[in-house]
Design a protein around this nucleic acid. Structure first.
Lengths: 364, 364
DNA sequence: CTGAAAGCGCTAACAG
DNA sequence: CTGTTAGCGCTTTCAG
């Protein structure tokens, strides 16, 4: 037995399909009597609207495509997806979702697939190649980029990394730290991927704040470098540990460290643990992203990226562009803010030259 | 200017739509000359197949719906999604994705939406209510459940938690540990959610292995309890810390701890860090899931759930069911395996009564 | 207020 | 080998 169609319901109710459609969507005039009969028929027939047919006829799909680039194991992007789904669901939209694996070619494929499916909007959870964004735009589909702006004609949701990193640095400075190290983003050897400028923004903030308080920005306090991409995980953990060890060697007076990401911070904390250096008693450390920061020991002070918000805003933006039927290229800003947890404490004169376990309580 | 249709291409090439369709899909007979002309026309016309029309005509969507229940910030489910996408993409399927927020009512809505869209399969990333699974099945849609089996008529992908937890415990035992504590799953006060039996499986393994080696399974070594669900995060972190402190008080001879999840383990490690107790020198600890375990200091030994695999297998299973056009309810098993990192070490006689920093190198 | 009818863009017999 | 044709299930004028 095939599924019930509008026609079947109509037959059952003794009316035309047009009438059934009208009661289904609550538009047009329908007499009370007809409505009743249709509703009864609807109940008896286990009818379920065929959205595919509807989409074909209406020439819109109420669907928006979401392209990401690999790591959903990174809670960062997971939150974005959830945020986008939320906004979509609130407007009756549905999310079609594809993985470009951070690869321009695959990204292009994804856009093509989406275009074939006639989705009405696309969200690029960090686009790989601007050309792919244009491809969507040219096909008359609204596009929103998250985090990185690759195509001026598209809309975007971004966060001000410089401002956020400035907040992080000011926090350290306000705690009395002056000898602050910087642990940068490791960029894999293999890719000539335009080393994204987000880490650069964060670094600029580091440098600017230091200058502001009259510190020299010494090379001994900064580690940036090439590292092979790690097998599991999303890269940066081992680099973080190696960077930290280097910093310990290079900058003996260090009292605090600003890591470009939670991941790098986690690596650094592993190195510190191995060395028996207590955080934050001997060294303060601050991360960026607020991904798994709460789970570290001690819980990591970091900058929280508004990931859910970014996804939510991106989808809302896409939907409003679709509704207005205007291509518009607006930019939404999201604010990242400092979350103070337990890895930052006031600087003390001696830095890490005090004995290990300065503040560690002993086991009972 | 509207988008090019098959008809336009046909006109341009001077053939019928049937011929164009044939070259497009490489089936049926087409003369070389006709093929050439069609290909030329295709190139000139920026034609893009309308998948919606195709779906309507063919009565299948090559789409599978993925329902999850909230936390994509949990890397656990993120990996599952990626795995599912991978398998789907390999077979030309596409993923429609909805969030049921762990709520039976919303889950039902999700199923309805999916059914309306005429998806050909559904994956429940841990279903909430068996009735919703049946709903899909009754509509003739293939359904696959991940992790929890709620509907006997559906297919499923599960992991043997008892076996995996046994491996974890055996690891501890082989290291010479006998005084092993158990940190259980905190169940929120508010929900009368059938405390899922997965934690129970893990606990059974704990008990069984201990008995195997002739240990009494003492209450002093076990902490299970009700805890209010935490605001951020997915619950269990603070419980882990509290449980750990309790265990320290109750079981002075403790040399190792088995935590029911990485999250609980992370909480425990925070408590230990605060107490100045070194891991693994004074106390070994093992987790479960392998979510952010690598990022902890020291990197947490844990049981790796094959999350990607689970997603991959679920989608593959759904796709094969769709292909066979058979409802079949088979179950696929995934193997979780031990990942030894740095939180487990041989038991020493004294347990944690030795001085802090047994193996901590001092800073240079 | 209601029904008939013309498609949305594509596919797949079927008949040349 | 190729074209004609009849829909897939729904929406929406347009006449009544």
């Amino acid at each position: 037995m095939r599924e019930a169609r509008l026609k079947d319901v109509a037959a059952l109710a003794g009316v035309s399909t047009a009438t059934v459609s009208r009661v289904l969507h609550g538009n047009g005039y329908v007499s009370a009597r007809a409505r009743e009969r249709v509703e009864a028929a609807l109940r008896d027939s286990s009818y379920r609207l065929n959205a595919v047919a509807q989409e074909l006829r209406r020439q819109k799909t109420i669907t928006i495509g979401l392209i990401l680039h690999g790591d959903l194991s990174n809670p960062f992007v997971g939150e974005i997806v959830i945020g986008a789904e939320q906004a979509a669901a609130e407007h009756g939209f549905t999310l079609l979702f594809l993985n470009a694996h951070g690869n321009p070619g695959q990204e292009r494929e994804c856009v093509e697939t989406l275009l074939k499916r006639r989705i009405d909007g696309i969200i690029f959870t960090t686009a790989v190649h601007g050309k792919n964004v244009s491809l969507a735009l040219d096909a008359g589909v609204r596009a929103v980029e998250i985090e990185r702006r690759l195509c001026a004609a598209a809309s975007a949701v971004v966060v001000d990394n410089h401002a956020a990193a400035t907040e992080a640095m000011r926090h350290l400075v306000s705690l009395g730290h002056r000898e602050i190290g910087f642990l940068g983003e490791p960029f894999p050897h293999d890719s000539d991927n335009d080393a994204t400028d987000i880490p650069k923004e964060r670094f600029r903030a580091y440098r600017d704040v230091l200058r502001e308080c009259g510190q020299v920005v010494g090379n001994s306090h900064i580690v940036l470098g090439h590292y092979p991409r790690e097998r599991g995980g999303w890269g940066g953990l081992e680099a973080g540990a190696a960077y930290m060890r280097r910093l310990l060697r290079q900058a003996p007076g260090l009292t605090a460290v600003f890591a470009v990401s939670d991941l790098v911070a986690a690596g650094a904390m592993q190195a510190l643990y191995a060395e028996g250096i207590r955080v934050p008693e001997q060294l303060s450390i601050i991360g960026f992203d607020d991904t798994f920061a709460r789970y570290l020991a001690p819980p990591l002070t970091t900058i929280r990226q508004p990931m859910f918000d970014m996804g939510y805003k991106a989808a809302s933006l896409a939907i409003s562009l679709i509704a207005e039927d205007a291509p518009g290229s607006s930019v939404e800003f999201c604010q990242a803010r400092l979350v103070i947890r337990e890895t930052t404490a006031p600087a003390r004169a001696a830095g890490r030259s005090r004995p290990a376990h300065g503040a560690g309580r002993t086991p009972h």
